[in-house]
Amino acid sequence: MNAQIALLLGQDGFINGAIYALLALSILLVFSVTRILLIPLGEFVSYAALTMASMQAGKPVMLGAMLVALCLIGLLMDARDALRAGRRLRFRASKLLMPAYVAAVTGLSVTLPLEHIGMAFQGALTVALVVPLGPLLYRVLFLPIASANGLVLLIVAIAAHVALTSAGLLIFGPEGSRTEPFSDATFTIGDAIINSQTLWVIALSFILIALLYAFFEKNLYGKALRATAVDRLGAQLVGISPALAGKASFALAAFISGLSGVLIAPITTIYFDSGFVISLKGFVGAIIGGLASYPVAAAGAVALGLVEAFSTFYASSYKEVIVFTLLLPVLLWRSVAQKGVKDEQ
């Protein structure tokens, strides 16, 4: 290997690592707020990538139909819960927010000439379409079992992943697709050629991480989400609704992974089931962070991306094996370093 190849691999590694880091952060966020391991996170990534690809290929965008269906199911469940509790069906303006939003983005995705609206707008609309999937899934699948034990939540998360993968096959078909790069420009520094896509991904990831940091440190709602993660009872006692916190964390996770999907779409060919392996690497990052530490998880995910890139060079057929084997020493070290067993509450 010479320096040039190492630099190319390094670029690849950083791109993938940045994406894994974003996913690791979403997984951590959702897990700490709701105790749910969000396995279907990868589907948000593949849905976003494939939606962006269908826009550019001039194919109809079908994701809106899924949003409308989930939204209707959610409304029916709301009505059923209200009836069970013996309350009158009260009209509240806040209840209309989600249906109105879903109607708006679905309307846009059906009526606009998506092929010709420019890449920035395509990307924005794609993310806007993926975001409501998070809170809607939480409402339909997880809210009714919010207080169930961790294993039940995990099983439902796996079921959601299987269902969403199948729905992805139905919506997007079996073919893989790849989108156009954001720009074709390349930069040459000495011997190294740096692809502008690399810079896009890394810059956007950094901006997103900085924004998330500011949100959790400075914003009252960000602090409320953190508080829910730290002490659920305490959060309830100051009036933070666990349901709202759950929906918010799912929305954030869907936003981050939707954006990751848009970022990764020009680099890799994405199929309806590609999301799982991508999010699994985010999981490895999150586990390196002990499902608790955000900076360690992000650093671990970037390291994972680099290991993956270099292992494609040395032993490409063992790429995944090497990446997931990396987990073993980490788990071993964690279980040795952590004295005693911490109870899950």
Partner: peptide
């Protein structure tokens, strides 16, 4: 238990 947000 006081239920404080201990890491904040």
């Amino acid at each position: 238990t006081r239920a404080l947000f201990s890491t904040m």
